[in-house]
């Protein structure tokens, strides 16, 4: 379990990082390394170069205003989890982050990194999708904003181009009259969930996000559905997949139970 050979660069500025990344089609960005390093050691990924952005200044900032929370690419899960302003502005962040793995992983892993890693079993991509947030990406070609709805292309696949770095993510603030809920069930504490559900309930809409159910985080609109029917209504839009930890039928049951629980939480 040793990685294949790779070159390693540690740029001191974003510009430098973007240049290196643009010049090396087989390079990968390293931030917290909590997903990438295991892939390297198991030789499931063998990039020719790692561009370590940990020395790039100003990427570790959390800024909150009335509109939402913006976090830089180097903000660790643990820092965001601790941040009182962020928790006030959008309570779903803290609610969901407490389910992200274990403290040691949260201390290194970055929230933006987790989002662009696009694992359908991860909490924060689903949160971003539910809230309708976005990711700001940069390359030598310039900057652009990718809306959450356009970000997740498939399992472990985002719509970032190879030469792009996600420099920040933006989560909209909780608006007056809105409530949120989050619950998940994992085999072991801190594992990837067999099923996770996040809810955003407002005066006009009820939206629910599902992680670990399909190949990308999935949003279902349950506006106006009676409380007793929410589970079946959600399943009408979902196609739960089996894996070694849960049959499709069991995963469907978790969708039913957790949808109800999370909507009660957010009621």
């Amino acid at each position: 379990m040793k990685p294949a050979p790779f070159a390693f660069v540690r740029p001191r500025s974003l510009e430098e990082a973007l240049e290196v990344l643009g010049a090396h089609p087989d390079a990968k960005v390293l931030a917290g390394g909590q997903s990438l390093v295991p892939l390297l050691t198991m030789r499931l990924a063998a990039p020719a170069m790692l561009v370590d952005i940990n020395a790039v200044p100003d990427l570790d900032r959390i800024s909150c205003d009335d509109d939402g929370v913006r976090i830089g690419a180097l903000v660790r899960h643990a820092a965001l989890l601790r941040d009182e302003d962020a928790a006030r502005t959008q309570p779903l962040l803290r609610l969901a982050l407490s389910h992200v793995a274990h403290p040691t992983i949260r201390n290194r892993g970055t929230t933006v990194g987790s989002i662009v890693h696009a694992d359908a079993a991860a909490e924060m991509p689903a949160v971003l999708a539910l809230l309708g947030g976005s990711v700001e990406v940069a390359s030598v070609r310039g900057r652009r904003t990718i809306e959450a709805a356009d970000l997740f292309a498939g399992p472990l696949e985002s719509t970032l181009a190879h030469d792009e770095i996600a420099v920040s993510a933006w989560f909209p603030a909780l608006r007056p009259g809105e409530r949120v809920g989050f619950a998940e069930i994992a085999r072991r504490h801190g594992d990837y969930a067999m099923c996770g559900v996040a809810a955003l309930v407002g005066p006009e809409r009820t939206r629910v996000a599902y992680l670990s159910v399909e190949e990308v985080p999935t949003i279902v609109d349950l506006t106006g559905v009676a409380p007793d029917d929410v589970g079946e209504a959600a399943l009408a839009h979902l196609d739960p997949q089996p894996d070694i930890h849960a049959t499709a039928a069991y995963r469907s049951q978790l969708v039913r139970v957790l949808t109800r629980r999370v909507l009660e939480q957010a009621a």
């Binding site: 295991p38 198991m42 085999r187 072991r188 504490h189 801190g190 594992d191 990837y192 070694i244 930890h245």
Partner: peptide, 15 residues
């Protein structure tokens, strides 16, 4: 199919 500590579920102290 589960030759790693990610998918072979040795209990944590929490279990």
């Amino acid at each position: 199919q589960n030759a790693s500590f990610m998918d072979f579920l040795m209990p944590y102290v929490s279990e």
